[in-house]
């Protein structure tokens, strides 16, 4: 494990360079984030990498370290109230509006799958609704998708946002890791998607989640992705962004505390 003084150094670096608050209690997280960067930069361990950062102060390497720490920490049921709202209200309403047609749900930039699997676990508790919902998930990273599809999570990962009851209900032990049940895994279809590419072949979706990406994008890329998401949203559909994301005028904010959006003007029409 990384020494406390090194953790403090990394936290100070992130704060100075990117205004980023790194919790030094999360030694494992810092370790797991820096390990791939350290390897890429030719060091045997994160500790060696940090020592080099301290001693040589290479600006490019320092940025590589900071960038690795920026990514949001994957967590099951992140913003728990959102999953309650989606399962109890939003998805049933969409199913009703579709009148028997499947409700198409897309978790875009799904990372290692915690978000879409959280939805799947909620749906498993409501079989009638689950039968009307198709879950899709995509990410840019093949490695993330492979991990997501395998449904294999470390002991640390299954303790992030997942209740012990859901762990017992849906996971089995596999060596030192935990593997999600085939029943939940089979509810999701996966595809590698770059959100900057043409998305029309994917069709349209009734519920679109893109909660961890916009904040990491440059302004032009963010605008492009929002335009793409707008095109992929079916009439009457709902878009969920991160709580800090700003959608501009392409969408109306329906429930800011959940990051829930709809097409402009639609809320007014449906209320009328």
């Amino acid at each position: 494990m990384i020494a406390p003084s090194d953790l403090t150094f990394v936290a100070a670096l992130c704060l100075a360079r990117a205004g980023l608050k790194v919790n030094t209690d999360k030694a494992y997280l810092i370790d797991s984030r820096l390990a791939p960067v350290a390897r890429r930069e030719g060091y045997d361990s994160p500790e060696d990498f940090i020592t080099a950062l301290r001693n040589r102060g290479d600006a490019r390497q320092a940025w590589a370290a900071v960038e690795a720490m920026v990514l949001p920490e994957p967590e099951f049921f992140r913003d728990r109230a959102l999953f309650d709202a989606l399962a109890d209200r939003v998805m049933p309403d969409l199913a009703h509006a579709r009148g028997g047609e499947p409700v198409r749900v897309w978790s875009a930039a799904c990372g290692t799958g915690q978000e879409v699997y959280s939805l799947a676990m909620r749906l498993a508790e409501a079989p009638a609704l689950a039968g009307q919902v198709d879950l899709f998930a995509s990410d840019l990273s093949e490695r993330s998708l492979e991990k997501a599809q395998a449904g294999l999570y470390s002991q640390f990962e299954v303790q992030r946002g997942l209740s012990a009851r859901n762990l017992v209900r849906h996971f089995e032990k596999s060596g030192e890791a935990f593997v999600l049940s085939p029943r939940i895994r089979q509810m999701v279809r996966w595809r590698r998607v770059n959100l900057m590419d043409d998305l029309t072949r994917l069709g349209q979706f009734d519920l679109l989640l893109c909660r961890g990406l916009l904040g990491q994008l440059a302004p032009e890329a963010r605008e492009k992705v929002l335009a793409q998401l707008q095109g992929a949203l079916a009439p009457g559909g709902r878009l969920v962004l991160g709580l800090k994301d700003v959608a501009g005028d392409r969408f109306d904010r329906l429930a800011p505390e959940l990051g829930l959006h709809g097409a402009p003007g639609e809320a007014v029409r449906s209320a009328a």
């Binding site: 209690d25 999360k26 494992y28 997280l29 920490e73 303790q159 992030r160 012990a164």
Partner: peptide, 17 residues
């Protein structure tokens, strides 16, 4: 029991539970 934490743990896990 209401919840279960597997060691090793950290502040984030305790806060989350």
């Amino acid at each position: 029991a209401d919840e279960f934490i597997m060691k090793p743990f950290d502040g984030g896990i305790v806060a989350g539970k």
